[in-house]
């Protein structure tokens, strides 16, 4: 495992040593090799625990948004969905990107259920099964990852492309990125990002398949599909608690607001639709809502589908650029008469 993580670990060591950041948030080994947990690292000796295994069980952006020390400079080892979430949070004044040093790793998806015989890293386009190298089986990836169009964390300060051979190419995307690489004594390379064509094709194929299955349904059938999914909801609020875009301190869905009837399980069906309306136009398809759902409601599919519709109409892409505002903030009179908006 060492060779794949070495560059990332070197960068983190460099950032800490040079004092660019006070702590670094990354996924790391916990109680044993397969226990992957978020870890705030301040001590050089913990850097060795950082992993890039194909299993990132929570949104790091959510963790810093929720728990960080507001006055600290923090480094993060991120995938592009984490990096994009950071951009969206910054857009919404929930954090200042100047305080964060983002080290991105190209990511081709995380597995849904881990098989201990498989060796897969987030940057893998292949997988090792019992030691033998095979093409990546898309079927074992988390559904949101299969639909993902953003393998390269261009919005991070640094992006690392790691090859199965262990070779790593590092690119600085920002001035902060150059500082990071210089602190880690890594020569600054440019223009070595991967070709994303194959990834975009994969994403389109899976989006067509998964959204297509829903769109093909008669409207009544589609409604009853979602209602029966919502019937499984146990109101754990895990989707909200995991969503990097859900940051309201006083949540609309909370029991004190009485908008969603309390003392009732499953919650009224509009529970999920209400959250959809709140975050749908900027959904990052990070899949956290679905990953934490005890009842495996395919929430991410619903949110991502609506996002793609809106994204097509308003030519808006979430998480790429801090200056690109979501439709809700940027809508114009012209937008209101576009096909598909149908306000009348």
């Amino acid at each position: 495992m060492g060779k794949y993580n070495e560059v990332v670990q070197n960068i983190v060591r460099g950032m800490l040593r040079a004092g660019l950041v006070e702590e670094v948030l990354a996924f790391a080994r916990g109680l044993n090799e397969s226990d992957i947990v978020p870890l705030f690292i301040t001590d050089q000796q913990d850097v060795d625990r950082i992993v890039t295994i194909s299993y990132y069980p929570s949104s790091l952006a959510k963790l810093v948004a929720e728990y960080r020390d507001k006055d600290k400079k923090i480094g993060m080892v991120v995938r592009s969905c984490d990096a994009r979430a950071m951009v969206e949070l910054a857009k919404r004044q929930q954090l200042n990107l100047e305080n964060f040093y983002l080290v991105g790793i190209e990511c081709y998806g995380v597995v849904k259920n881990r098989d201990k015989g498989h060796e897969i890293y987030i940057f893998s386009k292949e997988m090792k099964i019992d030691g033998e190298l095979k093409p990546l089986d898309e079927g074992i990836l988390s559904p949101n990852c299969r639909r993902c169009e953003y393998p390269i964390p261009t919005m991070a300060d640094v992006s690392c492309r790691i090859e199965q051979s262990g070779e790593t190419l590092v690119t600085a995307n920002t001035e902060k990125g150059r500082k990071i690489l210089s602190a880690a004594n890594i020569p600054i390379e440019e223009g070595h990002q991967s070709d994303v064509t194959a990834m975009k094709e994969r994403a389109a194929r899976w989006q067509d398949k998964e959204f297509g299955e829903l769109k093909e349904m008669e409207s009544k059938e589609r409604l009853s599909y979602w209602l029966s999914q919502f019937d499984k909801c146990i109101k754990c609020y895990g989707c909200r608690n995991s969503c990097p875009l859900c940051y309201c301190e006083d949540c609309y869905l909370g029991p004190e607001r009485l908008l969603i009837q309390r003392e009732e399980i499953p919650p009224q069906r509009l529970f999920h639709i209400t959250r959809l309306i709140h975050v749908g136009d900027s959904c990052l398809n990070c899949g956290q809502c679905e990953a934490t759902c005890p009842m495996e409601i395919p929430i991410s599919k619903l949110y991502h589908m609506l996002y793609k519709e809106l994204s097509g109409i308003f030519k808006y892409e979430s998480g790429l650029d801090i200056d690109m505002l979501p439709p809700v903030s940027a809508i114009t009179d012209e937008d209101l008469v576009k096909p598909g908006v149908d306000l009348d």
Partner: peptide, 13 residues
């Protein structure tokens, strides 16, 4: 927060 590797809850709560 949920603990993904724990075999009962598997990252859910």
């Amino acid at each position: 927060r949920p603990w993904p590797e724990q075999p009962i809850s598997q990252g859910k709560l």
